[in-house]
Amino acid sequence: MNAGIASRRLLFLGMKYAPIGVFDSGYGGLTILKEIVKYLPQYDYVYLGDNARAPYGNRSFETVYRYTLQCVEWFFAQGCPLVVLACNTASAKALRTIQQNDLPLIAPDRRVLGVIRPTTEVIGNYSVTRRVGIMATAGTVNSGSYTIEINKFYPDIQVFQEACPMWVPLVENNEHNGQGADYFIQKNLQHLLGQGAGIDTILLACTHYPLLANKIMQYLPAGIKLLSQGEIVARSLVHYLERHPEIANRISYSKLRKFCTTDDAIDFEQKASIFYGESVAAERIEL
């Protein structure tokens, strides 16, 4: 549905346009949005990819925090009562500061959620050996966020991490099904599994990586579970809204899907379908 038509429809019905905001530094968060929409199709959504400043993974904590806060404030200006940081780097480097320091001052009645906590809350349900592998960007690995959060919920789990810097470029250049992907997947898997015997669960802790899942499974030893975040985050959001009707009741529901980028809209449209699974119409915005 066209954004302008949907907004006028909501006004006609006496409802305020108040979508769920979904944020990523680029395209990967579309894999999260896809799953959220599958579980909660009734709501309005606005997606923002900060493509002009991507990638976030190699930037400092301060820079990621500053960029993410600017985007969160943009979402609030669109009327979003709830924003999901569908970006592991932003969740690792900016979420806690925004929740604790900024929201009480700029929007105490709104909420910002991330993708790390929902995943770490349940990962212990999948591991028998209590040895878990994390495959992520260098920024997420260096933050230590997954190790810290998993140990909060499951102190008995040992965490092994592997940074996979080539995986995002492979996906964004639509080479994730090519032979070049095989080399890097094998290399990173061997390095991760070589860190410690007994790893029985591997989490793909980057929203780009689910597109490599079929390739990864070709080289994954039997008995090791491979987890993607999308479905886990979507189920967690369902439960969150059930527990917080004061937020759920403020979200508008005309099934509007709006896609925005800080970079070229046509380029975004061409690549977005790889992640979202269907074509989208995008709008370029200024922060």
Score class of each variant (00 low, 15 high):
Val171Tyr: 01
Thr201His: 05
Ala181Met: 05
Gly178Val: 02
Asn177Tyr: 12
Asn174Gln: 14
Gln195Asp: 00
Val168Gly: 12
Trp167Pro: 08
His191Lys: 14
Tyr219Lys: 01
Tyr183Val: 13
Cys164Lys: 10
Pro210Asp: 03
Glu172Leu: 11
Leu220Pro: 10
Met217Asn: 11
Val171Asp: 03
Glu172Gly: 07
Gly178Thr: 12
Leu211Gln: 03
His176Lys: 01
Val171Thr: 06
Met217Trp: 01
Pro165Cys: 12
Glu175Val: 00
Glu175Asp: 11
Gly178Glu: 14
Ile199Gly: 01
Ile199Glu: 02
Leu193Glu: 02
Phe184Ala: 10
Leu189Phe: 00
Asn214Leu: 09
Leu220Lys: 06
Thr201Val: 15
Gln218Cys: 07
Ala197Leu: 10
Gln218Thr: 07
Pro169Arg: 07
His191Val: 03
Tyr209Asn: 03
Ile202Gly: 01
Phe184Arg: 09
Tyr219Pro: 02
Leu203Asp: 00
Pro210Lys: 07
Asn188Gln: 12
Leu220Phe: 05
Gln195Trp: 04
His191Tyr: 04
His191Trp: 01
Thr201Cys: 08
Gln195Ser: 04
Gln179Leu: 15
His191Ala: 14
Gly196Asn: 08
Ala205Thr: 06
Ala181Phe: 10
Cys164Met: 08
Gly196Leu: 05
Val171Cys: 10
Pro169Val: 12
Gly196Gln: 08
Lys187Leu: 15
Gln195Tyr: 05
Glu175Lys: 09
Ile216Asp: 01
Gly198Met: 08
Gly196Trp: 00
Asn173Phe: 08
Thr207Lys: 08
Gln190Met: 09
Tyr183Gln: 14
His176Gln: 13
Leu192Asp: 10
Lys187Ser: 14
Tyr209Ile: 06
Asn173Gln: 14
Cys164Glu: 06
Pro210Trp: 05
Lys215Ile: 02
Ala222Lys: 14
Asn177Met: 13
Pro165Trp: 07
Ile202His: 06
Tyr219Ser: 04
Gln190Cys: 09
Ala222Pro: 09
Phe184Leu: 11
Tyr183Asn: 11
Phe184Ile: 09
Pro221Lys: 03
Tyr209Lys: 04
Lys215Met: 11
Tyr209Met: 04
Ala181Cys: 09
Pro169Asp: 11
Asp200Trp: 09
Ala181Asp: 12
Gly178Lys: 12
Asn188Gly: 06
Tyr183Ile: 13
Pro210Ile: 02
Leu204Glu: 00
Gly178Phe: 10
Gly196Thr: 01
Leu204Gly: 00
Leu170Asn: 06
